[in-house]
């Protein structure tokens, strides 16, 4: 005898389930284990993770590091914003503030960088357009992510965390160039500039 949802079950209601229920619960449980296992597996095998190198940082210190970074590697300027071309393998800095991303980054295709993200005022959202790579940029925290641009081109950084009335104007730029076009292509890779990975000696 079944009760409905508004009847009080009398006596012991701890009874065996239907076979269909048991089978479904077993399948659902197995699927939950797959869902759980996929995340550690992707850490071992996948190319896209969120681990990063994470530290607390004072806003003033991060601003200072960004300025040093810009001073060291600036190669030009666009609409008042410095263009910076750091060597492959180096630590690079991107500072979010109301309402700009500073500086413009020129990166080398196939090279790995450690991209440091932070904010000096409120929360911002890092959205690499059009690849749709998203990270939260939190004031007081330095998120260092190893990134490897996979293709050359012009990209944008769109802020996707509400940061005040000028939020929609907060658009930054990333340029990815091939190893030949890269300022570091010859030197940093230690060869003739044709090394597609461009990583060897990247710390010079």
């Amino acid at each position: 005898m079944y009760e409905n949802g508004i009847q009080s079950p009398k006596g012991v209601w701890w009874k065996p389930a239907h076979r269909a229920e048991k089978v479904w619960i077993a399948i659902a449980f197995g699927w939950c284990m797959v869902l759980f296992a996929m995340m550690p597996i992707w850490h071992l095998r996948g190319g896209q993770n969120v681990s990063g190198i994470r530290h607390k940082v004072e806003a003033a210190d991060f601003r200072e590091r960004t300025n040093e970074f810009i001073a060291a590697y600036q190669v030009g300027e666009d609409r008042g914003m410095p263009i910076v071309e750091p060597p492959p393998g180096s630590d690079i800095y991107l500072l979010g503030m109301m309402w700009q991303w500073r500086p413009i980054l020129r990166l080398q295709e196939g090279a790995e960088y450690i991209l440091h993200l932070s904010s000096v005022d409120v929360n911002h959202g890092f959205n690499l357009h059009p690849f749709n790579i998203n990270f939260q940029v939190v004031p007081g925290y330095d998120y260092g992510l190893r990134i490897t641009p996979t293709e050359a081109g012009e990209f944008r950084i769109v802020c996707n965390e509400f940061c005040g009335v000028g939020h929609h104007m907060m658009v930054g730029r990333v340029e990815v160039v091939s190893a030949e076009e890269s300022r570091w292509g010859g030197n940093a890779s230690g060869g003739d500039g044709g090394d597609p990975n461009g990583q060897a000696g990247g710390d010079q």
């Binding site: 190319g47 896209q48 790579i133 992510l145």
Partner: peptide, 9 residues
């Protein structure tokens, strides 16, 4: 879809 994007981590 995720695997097609830039390597990051």
């Amino acid at each position: 879809l995720l695997s097609f994007t830039w390597q990051v981590g």
